[in-house]
Simulated scan of single mutants.
Amino acid sequence: MGYIEQQQQSRYTIEIGKVTFQLKEHHDFLWLKKIGDVFCVFDEQDSGNICFGVEINNKKLFVKYAGAKTLEFSGDTKDAVVRLIEAIPIYKKLEHPNLIKLVDHFSVGKGYAAVFEWIEGECLHSHWSFGGMAKYTNPESPFYRFKSLDIRKRLDALDTIFSFHTFVESQGFIAVDFYDGSILYDFKYHKTKICDIDFYRKSPFVNNIGEHFWGAKRSKAPEEFTLWATIDSRTNVFTMGAIAFGLLGGETDHTLSKWEADKELYEVAFKAVEKERNNRYATVKEFYEAWNKALK
């Protein structure tokens, strides 16, 4: 595997085998050669992580690394490293068939790497390839293709998401920063996997950031915009409802006219996204039971 690094206008271009990417400053990635051959890179993340697809002995792995100054990240790389390290016990505690599997993790110089099993799926929010309106209008976009699937397949995907988060709740955790970018869908075998649970936390806790609390605006509950508001199971209920509207309805438009499934399911989803938190289901488990009852 070749390794080339060049500096140009305060950007460093790194070439590993057939993969090329840019950083804000020099960083050593020769350690990747010990894992395998890099066949793809995901370098347009604003989380401070850079990710790679690596193959060795016909086995693919997904490597998430914190410690390099990526172009899209404006924070401190030390914070990104700490967040990834703190995420490791979360992946271990929440190990589940619906979640990507952590297989290794280790320090690399001043950085940190987490290695996962590779999933043959496509991210439903692939902003690096289909940014802006292209996500919704380009027929090649994973989100567009997913929304074109029949209702049954989309309901199956939601069941994967809801069942996992019922488990998450049972383990005393809250899903922070869960949105369609955390969903991988295999269009060949119609399987759904969840990735990127780095920010999940033990319940309950408070929003100590305010308006810019982690997460996509389209799937955040009102309390996730409010400083010192409680974040708990009712917050997760809102997130589950928001995801349902994203995959079956008009996303932030919660009207029945945009909803593609049965009215009974709409009513469950609509209750989940009530702005007044006390009007929502109290727990994800309660929401999931109501959802399944409406399905029948």
Rank of each mutant, 00 (worst) to 15 (best):
Leu71Asn: 02
Leu124Phe: 04
Gln7Trp: 14
Leu61Pro: 06
Thr166His: 03
Asp232Arg: 01
Thr137Leu: 05
Ser170Phe: 03
His27Leu: 06
Gln7Arg: 09
Val63His: 03
Leu124Glu: 02
Glu289Thr: 13
Val237Asp: 05
Leu71Gly: 03
Phe270Arg: 08
Ala113Ile: 06
His125Val: 13
Thr252Asp: 12
Phe42Gln: 08
Cys40Tyr: 10
Ile183Met: 10
Ser233Tyr: 10
Thr226Arg: 15
Thr192His: 05
Lys64Gln: 13
Asp177Asn: 11
Arg234Cys: 09
Gly67Pro: 11
Thr160Glu: 14
Ser129Gln: 15
Glu211Val: 10
Pro97Gly: 09
Phe173Cys: 02
Thr230His: 10
Asn58His: 13
Gly109Val: 05
Trp259Pro: 01
Leu102Asp: 07
Ser126Asp: 10
Val237Glu: 02
Ser203Met: 12
Asn278Gly: 05
Lys135Ser: 09
His212Lys: 14
Asp262Arg: 04
Cys195Asn: 12
Asp79Lys: 12
Leu84Trp: 05
Gly132Asn: 03
Arg11Thr: 14
Asp232Thr: 02
Lys64Val: 14
Gly109Asn: 08
His105Ser: 11
Arg11Leu: 14
Asn279Ala: 08
Thr20Met: 13
Lys285Cys: 14
Ile174Phe: 05
Leu124Val: 05
Gly109Cys: 04
Lys271Met: 04
Phe73Met: 05
Tyr112Ser: 09
Asn57Gly: 07
Ala175Ile: 03
Gly181Ile: 15
Lys193Phe: 00
Glu211Trp: 13
Gln6Gly: 02
Arg83Ile: 04
Lys263Glu: 14
Asp28His: 01
Thr192Val: 02
Ala261His: 05
Trp228Asn: 14
Phe73Ile: 10
Phe173Tyr: 06
His105Asn: 12
Ile88Tyr: 03
Gly121Thr: 06
Asp159Gln: 13
Thr239Ala: 11
